[in-house]
């Protein structure tokens, strides 16, 4: 859920999505859902000579499960905020989870 929220704050940023078939797709992040499926606009495939398959595709929906990495602009994230949210998130989870009572 935390990562989903982070991605939501990254909408309209240019990102590079690397897939598990080694395809690299640059585009503007338009939306993301809870499965981390991604919608990219204005896409560009790196190495279009080797991968001309998507030359006529301008925007796309990428299934979250086939993503290896997403490269994001460093100035678009507040790392301090991220770390705090991660620490809070894990404690919050323990509190609510009956297996880990306080």
């Amino acid at each position: 859920m935390l990562i989903f929220s982070v991605f939501k704050t990254l909408t309209d940023q240019t990102v590079i999505v690397e897939l598990k078939n080694d395809l690299l797709i640059t585009g503007v992040l338009k939306s993301v859902d809870q499965f981390l499926n991604i919608r990219l606009d204005n896409i560009q495939i790196s190495d279009e000579v080797r991968h001309p398959h998507m030359i006529a595709v301008k925007n796309c929906f990428i299934r979250g499960s086939v993503v290896r990495y997403v490269q994001i602009p460093a100035d678009a994230v507040d790392t301090q905020l991220l770390e705090d949210a991660t620490r809070r998130g894990s404690r919050f989870c323990y509190k609510r989870c009956p297996k880990f009572p306080d």
């Binding site: 598990k20 981390l36 979250g64 990495y69 490269q71 994001i72």
Partner: peptide, 11 residues
Amino acid sequence: KMEMLFVRGDG
């Protein structure tokens, strides 16, 4: 090298 990266957990 990459400056900021999301890594999917299944890998």
